[in-house]
Simulated scan of single mutants.
Amino acid sequence: MREIDPTTLTQRDNYKLLIGSVIPRPVAIVTTLSEAGVLNIAPFSFFSIVSSDPAMLSIAVQRKNGQAKDTARNLLATNEAVIHILDKENVVAANHTAAQLPPETSELDASGFTTVPSSTVAVPGLKEAKVRFETKLYQHIPIEAGSQADLLLLQVTAYHINEDIYQDGKIDPEGLQAVSRLAGNTYASIGEMFDIKRPDD
C-alpha cells in the first residue's frame, strides 16, 4: 500500500487522486440567474445529499484564480438555484454547458436545453431533466485554503419528477438512467444492481 501526503502534491495531483478514487459521483446540472438576469447552466460532480429533514443538497464550486465562478457568484447574489440530475438523455447537452463562457453569455443556446418556469424560485428549470430540485441557499461555507472553493448547502423547496419514473413514492433507477462521473472524460451509467439486507432490518 502506498502512502502519499496530500500536502506534498499539487492541486492538480490531489484532484486526480480524488476524482479517480471517489467514484462513481452523481452529477448535478445547476441553473442560476445572475443579477442581470442571465441564465447560467453548469454541471458539477462535487455534489451530494446532505440531509433529508430538512431536504438538503450540496455543491462545491472550485474558484478560478481565487475568483468565484458564475454559479457560486449567482447563488450568493440571489440565494436560488435549480439542481437537475444528469441522465443518459441529457448528458450530451449538459457537456456543452461546461464550455468557458463569459458571465454575460448563457449556455442555453449552446446546450439545446429548454427552460420551464419554477414554482418556488425565480430560476427556471430544464425541461429535459427527469428530476429537478428547486432550492434556496441555506448556508455558504467558503473554503479559503489552497486554490479555494465555495461549499453551498441548498434546501429543497420543490421536487419535479417525471411521472414515468415515479412509483409509489420512489424513483425507478432504471427509468431515471442517471449518469455518474468517473475520472477524466469518462462517465458511467447504472450497472449491475444487487441487494444486501441490513443487520437491523
Rank of each mutant, 00 (worst) to 15 (best):
P54W: 11
S111K: 05
A36N: 02
P124T: 02
R12A: 15
A178H: 07
Q11E: 15
P199K: 12
T186S: 06
K170F: 10
R132H: 00
T114Q: 01
V82S: 02
R2C: 11
A110R: 13
N65G: 08
R2A: 12
H96F: 13
V123I: 08
D150G: 09
A42E: 01
L154T: 04
E104K: 11
T31S: 12
F47R: 07
G191L: 13
G112V: 05
A110M: 12
L75E: 03
V179Q: 03
R181S: 05
A28M: 04
P142E: 07
Q100D: 05
E174T: 10
P102W: 14
K88Y: 11
V92C: 03
I29R: 00
D201A: 15
D172S: 08
T105Y: 12
P173L: 10
M1T: 14
I29M: 03
L126Q: 02
S106P: 01
E107K: 06
D109H: 14
R181F: 09
G37C: 06
R63D: 07
F194V: 10
N90R: 05
F133Q: 00
L182N: 07
G184F: 11
D201E: 14
D172Y: 11
V38D: 00
M56R: 13
F133L: 03
V123S: 00
H140Q: 03
S58C: 15
Q167N: 13
G184T: 09
E80A: 05
D201G: 12
E128L: 06
H140L: 08
P54E: 06
I85T: 01
P6S: 15
D87I: 14
S34Y: 13
